[in-house]
Design a protein around this nucleic acid. Sequence first.
DNA 1: GAGCACTGC
Length: 725
Amino acid sequence: MGLPQAMEATQGTKRKRVDEKSPLQQKRLKLLEGRKRLPIWLKQKEIRHALRDHNVLVLSGETGSGKSTQVPQFLLDQPWCSGKIAITQPRRVAAISLARRVAEEMGTPLGSSSPSSKVGYSVRFDDNTSPSTRIKYLTEGMLLQEMLRDATLGQYSCVIVDEVHERSVNVDLLLGFLKQLETRRSSSLKVVVMSATADVDSLRRFFSEMPIVTQGAISTALPTGAAETNGDECRSGSEAAWTGFGDEEERETANSSGVVASISKRIASCHVEGRQYPVVIRYLDNHSDDIMETTLHRIFQIHCKEPMPGDLLVFMTGSDRILDLQKIVEEYAQNLTSDFPKLLVLPLFAALSQAAQQRPFQPAPPNTRKVILSTNIAETSVTVPGVRFVVDTGMAKVKQFRIRLGLDSLLVKQISKSSADQRKGRAGREAPGQCHRLYTEAAYRSMEEHDKPEILRCDLSAAVLTMKARGADDVLAFPFLTPPPRDAMEKALLNLLRLGALQETGQISALGRKVARLPLTPSLGRVIIEAARPEMNCLLEVIDIVACLSVESIWLNVDTEEVRERAQTARQQLAKRSGDHLTLLAAVQAYAAEHSDRRRWADDHLISHRAMQSVMDVRKQLTAQCKQAKLLLRDTEAASASDEGLQERVLRCFLRGFSGNVARLCPDGSYKTFIGNQTVAIHPSSVLRGRKLEAIMYNEFVYTSKAYGRNVSAVQLRWYEEIIG
DNA sequence: GAGCACTGC
C-alpha cells in the first residue's frame, strides 16, 4: 500500500443513524462494484469453506488480488467467527490505510470515531479501535505486544498474517506462537497465512508438522480431533483451487516417546491470481564491470528511445551512489537537445527529509520524465506512481549479524530472484512496462530463490526475550519456520544472562519481564532499568538518550561542502566532551526547551525535525511506561546543572547494558575490544572521531568499509571493571 | 577523509 493511497483514504463521517442514503452507505455501494471485479472475489466461497473445514489456510496471491482488504470481510459473518479478526501488517502506513479502506467498503465509521465502528487499527502511538471493533488491522509488533497481556489471544477468532513472504523476525515469531496456539487453545483459532510468492509448500509443511513433545506433555501438544479426520470431503471437487491436506499428504510424525499421530484436515491452501500488466524483461548480454556507467547509459537509452509518458525507477544500493549518479545524470541531461523531453532526477531513500521523499509522488512538469534513483525503499515500502521503466542493478545492501564477531555487517550483495521479480513488478502497476536488468540472464538464474529470512541474519537477543516473556520457555524447541543456528541462539541466551534478563536456569527473571515490556532492544531496556535504581537516579536523562538511540539518526544528512560546515558549527554548540550520549541529551533538552518554533530550531541546527518528533513520541511513551511500572521516582523536573556526578552515572548506566561494547586504546593508536580483541574505529559521525581516549563504549558495532563503533562515549576503565567484576 | 539498506514495539 503506497503513500498516496494512504493519503487519499478519507475519514468516515460521524452519523448517529445509518440508513441507505447516508454518505457511508452510498460510498459502500459504489465501492462494492470495484470489489466484485477483484480476482479474489471469485474465491470467496472457497475461502469460507476452507476455514469452515480447516483451522489453517495458506493463501498465496500476487499484488492486486485484493486479499488484504477482502479476506477479513469474507470471514466476518461465519458461524465460527464470534470474536474479532486480527490482520497483521509489517508496516504502520499499510495497517492504517487498509483499515480506512475496509471501513469505507463496509460502510462503517473508522476506529474510535464511533461506538458502532466495526473496523479499526492499532499501531504504535495510535490505537484507533473501539469496543465494537471486529476487524483490527495491526502491525506485527502490536500483536506480539498484546500477547504480553493475553498469550492465548483470547479475543480473536481468527488471526490473518499478511505479507509473510517478507519474513520479518516478528512474522516468524507470530507464526510459531500461532502454531502452538492452534493446537493448545481451548477455543478454536483460525489462522490465515497470506503470502505473495507461490512458496506455499514450506508453510503447509510448517503447520502440519507436530509440535515437539517433551516431558510427557503429549495430551496438550496433540491437536485435538486429529484422529477424527479422513480428509475425503474437502479435496474432492476440482472446482476448488485450494487443496486440503488429504490422504496422500497425510503425515505420520513420531515423537520421542514413540507416539504416532496422524495429521490431516487441518490445513488448506488457495491461490489467487494477481492483477498486473505485462512487463518485458531485458538482460545484459555480458556482465558489466562498471555498473554506474552501465546504469547511466541505460537511463539515457530508455529516455531517448521510449515515448512519453512513463517514468524511470532505478534500484541502487545506497544514498552515496544515488547522489553520485544524480550529479552525473543531471550533467548529461543538460546536453540533451530540445527534441527530447526534459529529465527530472529524484533521489529516494529513507534518510531523506520528509519533503524530499514526497517529490517522486508529485507530477512532473510538462514534457518532463522523472528518473527516480532509489534504494530498496521503493521495492516494498512505497509505491511510486507513473513508473513504466525499471532499471535494476541487481544489488542491495544487506545487514547480517556476525555471531562470532558480535557485530553487524552492512555490505553490498546480489539480490534474490524474488527481490528481482518484485522490482520488475514495479514497472507494471499502471500500464505495460519494461524491466532492464543490468546483469545477464545467467546471473539471474544463479540467484538465490529468496532473501535470507531476517531471523537468520540478526542478533536473536530480542527474539529470545520475546519468546520467553510470552511463555515459550524452551526456545530451542520453539517452532521456527526456519530454525536459526544453535550457536546464534546460545549467543542470545548468554547476552540475556549477562544483562540479568534471565536467571541461571534460563528462565526469565523479574528484571527480564520488565525489559520485555519496553519497546526497546534488551540492551537499551536494561539501561532504563539501571537508571531507575535509586543510587543512579538519572532515568529522565537516560530516557532522552535512549529515545534518540532507538529512532533514526537525529543528525541531518549533509551533502554539500557549505552545508557541512554549517552543520559542524551548529553541532559544536551541542557537542559534549564525553561523547555522543551526552551530546544527544543536550540536543533533546535544547529541543524540548524550545517552545516557540521547534521546526526552525531543528533546521538551524541541521537536526532532523522528523526524527526529533519521533524522539519526543518515544520519550513520552517510555516515561508513561516507567511511571506505570513504578520505575520513575522523580517526576518531570530536570536535574540541576550542578549535579556533578550526573554525567558519570548516565554513562555507567549505559555501560551496564553495553558492557560487551567496550574497547581500550592500544599503543598503536587503535582501539581494541575487551571481548574478542578486535579493532574498532570511532564512526565518522561521532563527536569523538579522531580522539584518543583511555576507553570507549559504543551502542552499535557495525562493519561497512571497516569495523566502526557508532554512538560512542568515553568511559573509565574503573567503571568497566566494577561492572565486570 | 570518511560515512547505515529497510521495517517495528
